[in-house]
Amino acid sequence: MKKVTSSYYKLPVGSIPFKEIPSLEDINYEYVYCKSFPLIDFMTLDFYLTSVYAAFDNEVEEVQDLQNRELLFGSVVADKFLTRGKAKCIKFGSIEEVISAEQLPHLRYCSNENRQADGKWFYMKDGHYTILSGIRSDFDKVKHLEAGAIYGDNIIRLRIVIEFLKRNVKDGLVELSEDQYKEIAYKVLCSDPTLLKSDDTVIVDGVNNWVPAMLLTPLYSEIPIKYRGKVMELQQVGGKIT
């Protein structure tokens, strides 16, 4: 068990060109609420476990208001939030928590570059988020887990857009191919304040690296609570996670 300080932030999302994105034109959020705590006591590396809530702008008055709010997607490993500059995050509270390694989410990764269902899939647990700690598994048992990759503020903003779009595709509000998702992702990253000076090749590589993994993960609301952040113990039944 480790005692950690969980900090709560408002991450700016005003740079996202919502009005230029199909089915998201009416969104005008400025901030999304997030939680983050250091993983250094678990994995001896200076990264954070970050959760992004389905809560925006003035929907939250204090930290306690987030306790029962749904996440937009599973908790991910991330860099420390930026608290300076044009895209700085605003800290609005913190709490002390006692967390065990077993409570940390499992993360998935694939040893094949194409990351398809027939690839070699692994998961990492207990905060041992390194490839050497990977445990061999099956795609159907890990596909609902978050990928073992390091998020930055800009990738969190991109993920928010992708999750909104996945939900709207499911609801029949828009139809998108993977290439169209990538075109939107390119536009989002080009608009991000942290990437304005980045080479176009860097952004294209980022899109190609991140978008397929985001699309592979089901909507968080569709993952049974008992399997959120945990490898499945059962096979899929009828095409759905049970």
Rank of each mutant, 00 (worst) to 15 (best):
K120Q: 13
E61G: 14
R84T: 15
W121Y: 07
D126C: 03
L107G: 06
V60A: 03
D140T: 07
D126W: 04
K120A: 13
Y123Q: 07
L82A: 12
Y109R: 02
A101L: 03
N114F: 10
D118P: 01
V52Y: 00
F139V: 05
S111Q: 08
C89G: 10
K91A: 14
S75E: 08
K80I: 09
L82Y: 07
C110S: 06
R115Y: 11
V98M: 02
V142P: 01
S75F: 04
R115V: 10
T130Q: 15
E97F: 11
D118S: 13
A87M: 08
V77I: 13
E113L: 05
A117V: 06
L82E: 13
S75A: 15
R84D: 11
N68Y: 12
A55N: 02
I99K: 12
K141Y: 11
L132F: 09
H106A: 07
E113A: 05
R136S: 14
N58W: 11
K120S: 13
H106D: 11
T83A: 00
A55L: 03
W121M: 08
E97R: 15
Y123M: 09
I90W: 09
Q67L: 15
K91F: 10
F122V: 01
T50F: 00
D118E: 13
T50H: 03
K91P: 00
G93A: 01
A78R: 01
G93I: 04
L71I: 03
H128S: 11
L82N: 14
S137Q: 12
R108G: 06
L104F: 03
V60F: 00
E113Q: 06
N114K: 14
A78V: 00
N112D: 11
D65T: 01
D140I: 00
L104N: 05
I99W: 12
R69L: 06
K88V: 08
S111A: 11
